[in-house]
Amino acid sequence: MTRQLVSERVELAAEGLHSGPVDLVEVVAAEPPALVLLDMLGLQDVDVPALKAWSRESLELFWGWPDEDRQLELAHSAAEFYGWLRKRVAAARKLPGDDLFGVLVELGLSDEEVCAVAYFLLIAGQETTTQLISTAFHRSIGRAVDEPAAVVEQVLRKSSSVPTWRRVTAAPVSVGEVELPAGEPVLLGLTGHGGPADLAFGLGIHRCLGAGLARLEARVALECAAPLLSAVRVVEEPPMIDLLSFRAPARVLVEAVDSGLEPS
């Protein structure tokens, strides 16, 4: 499914290049992870552009530095998302099904618990993967992508879409020459510090549930887009999503190096 979705969008991007620059984030990377996740969770009739907007705005609300006016805008967006979740839960209670909401209701979770699980799963299960693919695309433009899996691992090691994460020390601990007491908040640098690629997904009980899926989707996206990426160049330095724990190109605007570029 990932291969089909990405391939279709790569063709659209290649066709669009005949008319001018194309944003590889919007045209190629944005929607496939969401569509795959929704299919896996059995969710239908979902406004994908709305889900993407809710996801980006929730990340900014929780991990960004919005001023008071922007906070209010983002809070309204989060409330709209939560209201949509409550409607899906209510529908699942009236007519239980085998989708995400039906299963969680059947397990006996409260409305608030179902909404909490769905809220973060529907964001984390696709938005960070879009960001991972966007970063991989940007790093691969103008290059021959011979080993897509290796490119993905390099991105995860050096510039993952989740470069940091917050934790609280469970017990007194020494970090280098710093002594930290129990209960101390810390910000962990997950990538770009010489650690393994796996660290981008966390370790132990906090390991990302979708680590394997994210790797697969990013690898397949690079495989499908490789001919296109080698035949384009960046139009501008991309504006960045630059939040406390999320970083990726918000836009990757490219133009064809060869005006005769054909759709793949």
Results as ranks from 00 to 15, higher is better:
V6W: 04
L43G: 04
K158S: 15
A78V: 13
L121V: 12
A78L: 14
V117R: 02
I141D: 05
A149N: 02
P21K: 11
A79G: 15
D198C: 12
R233H: 10
A182Y: 12
V22G: 03
V48G: 05
T129I: 13
E127K: 05
W65V: 14
V46T: 11
A29M: 12
E73Q: 15
P21F: 15
G42L: 04
V48T: 14
F201P: 08
L5D: 08
A91N: 10
V234A: 14
L74A: 15
V6L: 09
E217Y: 07
E179K: 11
R88A: 02
P249S: 04
R143S: 14
F120A: 07
E80K: 12
L243Q: 00
I133Y: 03
V235S: 12
E179L: 11
Y82G: 05
T191I: 07
L72C: 08
E113R: 06
L109N: 08
E112T: 14
S245E: 12
F137W: 03
A13I: 07
D69L: 14
L37T: 03
R233D: 13
A53S: 12
R166F: 06
I141S: 06
L107T: 08
T191Y: 02
G210P: 03
L95C: 13
E112V: 15
G64I: 09
W54Y: 13
P148G: 06
G102W: 00
Q71I: 12
L188F: 04
R93V: 13
A13E: 02
R9F: 01
D99W: 03
R93N: 11
E31A: 13
S77P: 08
G195I: 08
G204M: 08
V234Q: 09
T128I: 12
L24S: 01
R207V: 11
F120C: 06
T135W: 07
Q126C: 01
I141Y: 05
Q44L: 15
E217D: 08
A13R: 01
A231S: 10
L261F: 13
L229P: 01
L261R: 04
T191N: 02
A231L: 06
P32K: 00
A182S: 15
E262M: 09
E80R: 15
V89M: 02
A75V: 15
L107K: 10
E57D: 15
V6I: 12
S7A: 14
V178F: 06
L229T: 01
K94P: 02
G212F: 05
P32L: 05
L85G: 01
A116I: 05
L213N: 03
E237S: 12
L41P: 04
T128L: 07
V162R: 05
F62E: 03
Y119V: 00
L85C: 06
S245A: 14
A79Y: 10
